Computed example of a mutant assay.
Amino acid sequence: MTSVAAGKQWRAGHCVLAPDKFKGSLTAARVAAHLAAGLRQQRPDVPVVIMPVADGGDGTVDAVVESGFARLSTTVRGPGRARVVASFAIRDHTAVIELAQASGLHLNPGKPDATMALTASSIGTGELIKTAVERGARRVVLGLGGSACTDGGTGMLTALGVRFLDEHGHQLPPGGGSLRKLARIDASAMIRVPVTVASDVDNPLLGVRGAANVYARQKGARTADVDELERGLAHFASIVRRDLHVDVVDRPGAGAAGGVGYAALAFLDAQVRPGIELVLEQLGFAEQVAGARLVITGEGCLDRQTLHGKAPVGVARAAAAAGAAVVAVAGQCSLSDQQLRRAHIEQAYALTDIEPDPQICMTEAGPLLEQVARDIAQNWLADKRHLVTDNR
Rank of each mutant, 00 (worst) to 15 (best):
Trp10Glu: 01
Arg11Ser: 14
Cys15Lys: 09
Phe22Gly: 03
Gly24Met: 08
Ser25Val: 14
Leu35Trp: 04
Arg40Thr: 14
Asp45Lys: 06
Val46Gly: 02
Met51Trp: 09
Asp55Gln: 03
Asp58Asn: 15
Val85Asn: 13
Ser87Thr: 10
Ile97Arg: 03
Gly104Met: 08
Met116Val: 14
Met116Ile: 10
Leu118Ala: 00
Thr119Lys: 00
Ser122Gln: 13
Thr125Pro: 00
Gly126Arg: 12
Thr131Asn: 11
Ala132Cys: 13
Ala132Asn: 15
Arg135Cys: 14
Ala137His: 10
Val140Lys: 11
Val140Glu: 13
Cys149Ala: 15
Asp151Gln: 04
Gly153Phe: 04
Gly153Ile: 10
Thr154Ser: 10
Leu157Cys: 04
Leu157Met: 03
Leu157Arg: 01
Thr158Ile: 02
Arg163Ile: 05
Arg163Cys: 11
Pro173Leu: 00
Gly177Met: 00
Ser178Glu: 05
Arg180Cys: 06
Arg184Asp: 05
Ala187Val: 01
Ser188Glu: 08
Ile191Tyr: 00
Val193Tyr: 07
Val201Thr: 05
Val201Trp: 10
Asp202Cys: 07
Asp202Thr: 14
Pro204Ala: 06
Gly207Asp: 07
Arg209Asn: 14
Ala211Tyr: 08
Val214Gly: 11
Ala216Leu: 03
Ala221Trp: 02
Thr223His: 00
Ala224Gln: 11
Val226Cys: 01
Gly232Phe: 01
Ala234Trp: 00
His235Lys: 02
Phe236His: 01
Ser238Cys: 00
Ile239Asn: 06
Ile239Pro: 03
Arg241Gln: 08
Val246Glu: 05
Asp247Thr: 02
Ala254Pro: 13
Leu265Cys: 13
Gln271Trp: 09
Val289Pro: 01
Ala292Ile: 12
Ile296Cys: 11
Ile296Ser: 12
Gly298Trp: 01
Gly300Lys: 09
Gly300Gln: 11
Thr306Gly: 05
Lys310Ile: 03
Val313Met: 09
Val315Tyr: 13
Ala321Leu: 04
Ala322Gly: 08
Leu335Ser: 07
Gln338Phe: 15
Gln338Asn: 14
Leu340Pro: 02
Arg342Leu: 12
Ala350Lys: 01
Leu351Tyr: 03
Asp357Trp: 03
Gln359Lys: 08
Ala365Leu: 07
Leu369Asn: 08
Asp383Phe: 07
Arg385Val: 15
